[in-house]
Design a protein around this nucleic acid. Structure first.
Lengths: 232, 232
DNA sequence: GCTTGTGAAACGTTTCACAGCA
DNA sequence: TGCTGTGAAACGTTTCACAAGC
């Protein structure tokens, strides 16, 4: 009796079995944290590490750590844990830091110049191999006496991206021109952009964006302070 | 026999009704995006904006936008939308950027110096009012000729935090000393830390952390490029 | 003993869909 | 008509709990 419950399709037979699902975005973000933690381990101190130890170091549960790894395959050894060296290699391979990435930087203001000489990028295999600016005064100047880092006009983006095999663009220009420069980067063949401007960039599908808007971070910090909560 | 299924409490009568729940962390992050978008609007062009317009600009649904605002109260006007000026004021108040925050910076390497002169912070009401370093060579130097930004020894953190009403610490020192400096910041009375080091800081409850680890961002970008997905 | 990998349950977030108002 | 605010449904993520392996 009373037999009229469902308005929606009750339940489609779900997905094609051949199609492996994409990993959850939060899991991918944590992969970087796991790798960072492993790289910070005192060298050679641990040959293996358990999901419990790794999770504790980052404020996560052991189940979370195991689930995250499980999206990408079998990593561990029951009763033993994960071999640190092997795990690091696997994470680097998944994230793509087991190779070198060539990057270009546009915008040689104070932030841009600081980024150019920042050693942390190179340690992870990200090399800035070209610099651009639209200020005629700056064109032709060399950064730290390196001829390969001679500042070039933005018109040359396309040629240089092709010549030097560049996949990543670092965007350190003022907000009002950042969309324009981003378009130029994409047209030049860049596949991903690290964006320091406080702007939500519009790019076509297939182009990746990572935001490094520092004021956004400070805002979140202010909220956290006002509301006594922790984040990160 | 076989009568021992449930180990857990089956179901507690849930929460105290008086206690309003904390807003979801993703909603708080988007609040900053909404505000950024509104601030980027051509001045005076729109007096009002709808959840649909705002959502579209950020790649979100209209329902998402409305739900996010609803966590913090009634913001809009049915049939009309949201008044831009009023909405910005409310978002700033929630995030805590309707006031001035005094910050200190530790670590005057290239990145630290670039941050000190970065104008974007001041525009949002974050003022760096003190600088510290542990390099005896640097102590006493002034940044851009500003006596208030004379580089001070880290021992003076506690005194300066109290004198200048500082709530935020910006951490731009090498990874191997960043936990030590963070501890000093917390001991000095700082309430939140913006951390540029590639390290997961341990702080006591009640202290907020925001991470600005740039290599983490590049890693996520590399993953995105390899797997053709967008993020941000 | 300890640890992984994994279905299933619990929990959280987003989307849907609509009442109510301008 | 156009829009907000909001319960309820749909979807996604995390935690639980345990079989299997060291």
């Amino acid at each position: 009796m009373t037999a009229d419950k469902p308005q929606k399709q009750p339940d489609l037979p779900p997905a094609q079995p051949g199609k492996s699902e994409p990993p959850p975005a939060p899991a991918v973000r944590r992969l970087s944290l796991y790798l960072r933690e492993l790289e910070g381990l005192p060298k050679g101190e641990h040959r293996t590490i358990s999901s419990k130890q790794l999770g504790k170091a980052l404020g996560l549960t052991d189940a979370q750590v195991r689930k995250d790894f499980a999206y990408f395959g079998q990593f561990g050894h029951p009763g033993v844990g994960y071999q640190v060296t092997e795990l690091m290699g696997r994470l680097r391979h998944i994230l793509g830091t087991d190779r070198t990435w060539n990057a270009l930087l546009v915008g040689t203001g104070k932030l841009g110049q600081a980024l150019l000489t920042y050693q942390g990028f190179a340690k992870k295999g990200f090399r800035v191999v070209a610099t651009f600016d639209n200020d005629p005064q700056k064109i032709g100047q060399q950064i730290e006496g390196r001829p390969d880092l001679e500042i070039q006009p933005i018109e040359r983006l396309g040629q240089v991206v092709a010549e030097r095999g560049i996949a990543i663009g670092i965007l350190a220009v003022p907000a009002d021109v950042s969309q324009h420069v981003a378009d130029a980067m994409v047209a030049a063949g860049v596949k991903g952009i690290l964006n320091f401007a406080p702007i939500s960039l519009k790019v076509r599908a297939g182009i990746s964006i990572a935001s490094a808007d520092l004021t956004l971070r400070l805002e979140q910090l202010a909220f956290g302070i006002l509301h006594q909560a922790d984040q990160d």
